[in-house]
């Protein structure tokens, strides 16, 4: 009986893969590739944000101000203090450590998106960095072997499988995202990342999250201020920047 169930599950998975592969390839091919040298890119009436609606704009703007306020008065000072005390090497190691722990989740997502060579890269990176990189503190796979980090998220996987973005949203203490991508991130990090499972309760998980994000922020201090200085409507500048970065990242992976 047990044996039967195993065969059943394996054949089911096989069938799913057989159907999924041509489907994903077809869907991936539909992605619009951006060419900056093409004037059409600048003439397009339709901009990124009209593709993903922003019906909650008033609420989002309020959240944006809230994030801006907490960034300026709490997060930035704390992260600056932290970056002053802790040397950059250590902060990069901490960042690497958390990044490495999520490599298996990334790999699963890449597989589900039929990006087999990226999935291979992720698996190799995980093995090399977990051993040679001392539990992921270093990144010998990227530095010595030229296996550069690639990302794959559940948000993307859902996109490949035809799930729409829903709408744009600004999440407190997290930032710009869409309904689909935020759902994906929550599942990716909360449900599938080992460090939240190790935690004893939600307080500890929250602590880990804040610590991880604070560490990350300390590596990008000043970027937000710069962006704000350059734009006259920071809300729209960030929203547009978010969508442009996302399109570019996903494009890059399908073309190269």
């Amino acid at each position: 009986m047990k044996y039967f169930i195993q065969i059943y599950i394996i054949s089911l998975l096989g069938a799913v893969c057989l159907i999924a592969f041509p489907l994903t390839v077809a869907l991936a091919a539909n992605d619009k590739v951006i060419d900056f040298l093409d004037d059409a890119f600048y003439d397009e009436e339709e901009t990124e944000h009209t593709q993903v609606p922003d019906p909650l704009e008033p609420l989002n703007r309020w959240m944006f101000s809230f994030n801006d306020y907490s960034y300026t008065w709490v997060l930035e000072p704390v992260a600056s203090g932290y970056s002053y005390v802790v040397p950059p090497d250590i902060r990069h190691s901490v960042d690497n450590f958390f990044y490495n722990l999520q490599e298996p989740v990334r790999c699963l997502n890449a597989l589900a998106q039929a990006r087999f060579s990226d999935a291979g890269t992720m698996a190799l990176r995980f093995i090399v960095n977990s051993t040679g990189g001392v539990a992921g503190l270093g990144d010998p796979a990227g530095r010595e072997l030229g296996l550069k980090a690639v990302d794959a998220t559940l948000g993307e996987t859902m996109g490949v499988w035809g799930v729409g973005d829903g709408f744009y949203m600004v999440v407190p203490l997290y930032g710009p995202t869409t309904l689909r991508d935020f759902t994906g991130t929550t599942v990716d990090s909360l449900a599938l990342s080992p460090y939240y499972m190790w935690a004893d309760g939600w307080e500890e998980s929250m602590g880990i999250y804040l610590g991880k994000e604070l560490n990350k922020l300390s590596l990008f201090l000043g970027d937000y201020e710069k962006m704000k200085q350059l734009s006259f409507d920071p809300y729209i500048a960030i929203r547009n920047g978010y969508f442009q970065t996302r399109t570019q990242m996903r494009n890059y992976k399908t073309t190269e």
Partner: peptide, 13 residues
């Protein structure tokens, strides 16, 4: 810059 077109960003604003 990092995949973000400056012109496109200002345009939306």
């Amino acid at each position: 810059v990092e995949g973000v077109s400056l012109v496109r960003n200002y345009r939306e604003q």
